[in-house]
Design a binder for these strands. Structure first.
Length: 362
DNA sequence: CGGTTCAGTGAT
DNA sequence: ATCACTGAACCG
């Protein structure tokens, strides 16, 4: 599963860290605890307290029936790794490793549906019914567009463990453009490591800091106030690794706003999230992505042209095709040569299809 | 690209 | 009756 070349460096790092430390690993060479009789082997990395044998013996009584569990900390998928919050029914963070090769390919959304993650205990998972009619859209953390190389990876990205309730305009607009920007970085850098997730931040009210958030559906899925994205770019040839960290409000954000408005220091995000995101990264060799690369998202005109192009490609009738073409006029957009050619060839293709159809009915 | 909604169909 | 699945139409 992890034998793919592009995954190796990342996964090696993960496996080498806290994930698979057990009490046995940590203390067996120092104490005489029999791991066979020890029924709560999985503990956090910072288990130094248990190195004291007396305390460990005591813990065996205290945790006689097992240590309270919040489920596995790390969950592995073909193209992403995530930590899941069983209480909020959303991920805590979702990490991806992007290369040019895995953001392009034939995989598509057809016949792929959002569904509860079968790896999450049913009573702790979100369901489609929670989102339906809630007013919130299902926002990917590892986006479908990052998994174009593998239909299986794309299918897994639609598990609700990879999804948070997201404002629809934000999801299809600003956040979408941020995701496109990240994919675009693979043209400049060999690999991009991205960690995304939801935040529930306190708001000031009457001089007090109040945490307030909506929950949706029978499962009470938590609606985040903000979303974050950590973007680290690297190439073998480069001495520094450009890093950009962003905290974006979960609401509509128009084209007048630039990405840099939402940039924060990594430490700032770590403080509010309570998560150390890149513990093994030497922060001395980090540079500012927005100074190096600009952090410029697609402008309004280009963005509109982009999804009109997509609609032309997916048109299945001349009527629809011409309606989409009319959107150019409505929005006073100038199609480039590529679009004109695309329109003409698509029109011809559909002419033939519809002609065949009418012949069959005759 | 990112999504939702609604109508029709078939299975339990 | 209700749920799952699919396609068509819709939005920015």
């Amino acid at each position: 599963m992890f034998s793919k070349g592009f995954l190796t460096p990342f996964v090696t790092g993960v496996l080498g860290s806290a994930a698979f430390y057990t009490v046995f690993d940590k203390i067996s060479h120092k104490s005489r605890v029999d791991p066979e009789k020890f029924d709560f082997l999985k503990v956090p990395e910072d288990s130094s307290v248990l190195e004291d044998t007396k305390k460990l013996e005591q813990a065996r009584s205290i945790l006689k029936y097992g240590a309270p569990s919040q489920g596995p900390y790390l969950r592995f998928y073909e193209n992403h790794v995530l930590a899941y919050d069983q209480s909020k029914r959303t991920p805590i963070w979702v990490a991806e490793y992007l290369t040019k090769a895995n953001v392009e390919g034939p995989a598509n959304r057809k016949n792929v549906k959002f569904r509860p993650d079968p790896n999450v205990t049913v009573m702790y998972t979100a369901h489609n019914s929670d989102y339906l009619g809630s007013g919130w859209s299902r926002g990917h953390m590892s986006p479908a567009g990052d998994n174009k190389h593998s239909q299986e990876a794309m299918r897994e990205s639609f598990y609700l463990s990879n999804v948070v309730p997201q404002d629809l305009q934000n999801n299809g607009g600003f956040w979408n453009r941020l995701e496109m920007y990240c994919r675009d970085l693979t043209k400049t850098y060999q690999s991009i490591i991205i960690i995304s997730g939801p935040l529930i931040l306190p708001q000031e009210r009457n001089g007090k800091q109040i945490v307030e958030y909506e929950v949706i559906g029978k499962s009470q899925v938590s609606v985040p106030t903000h979303l974050f994205k950590v973007v680290l770019a690297e190439s073998d040839s480069m001495p520094t690794k450009p890093l950009g960290v962003f905290i974006v409000p979960n609401k509509p954000i128009g084209f007048e706003h630039s990405l840099t408005e939402f940039q924060v220091e990594l430490e700032e995000l770590e403080r509010v999230a309570g998560v150390t995101f890149l513990p093994k990264l030497d922060r001395k060799q980090v540079s500012d992505l927005c100074k190096v690369n600009g952090c410029k998202l697609m402008k309004k005109e280009k963005f509109q042209l982009y999804f009109i192009t997509r609609k032309i490609q997916s048109s299945r009738s001349i009527k629809h095709l011409d309606k989409v073409w009319g959107e150019l006029e409505e929005n006073k957009l100038q199609p480039d040569e590529y679009m004109v050619n695309l329109y003409n060839s698509k029109r011809e293709e559909l002419m033939n299809v519809e002609k065949d159809k009418s012949n069959v009915t005759k």
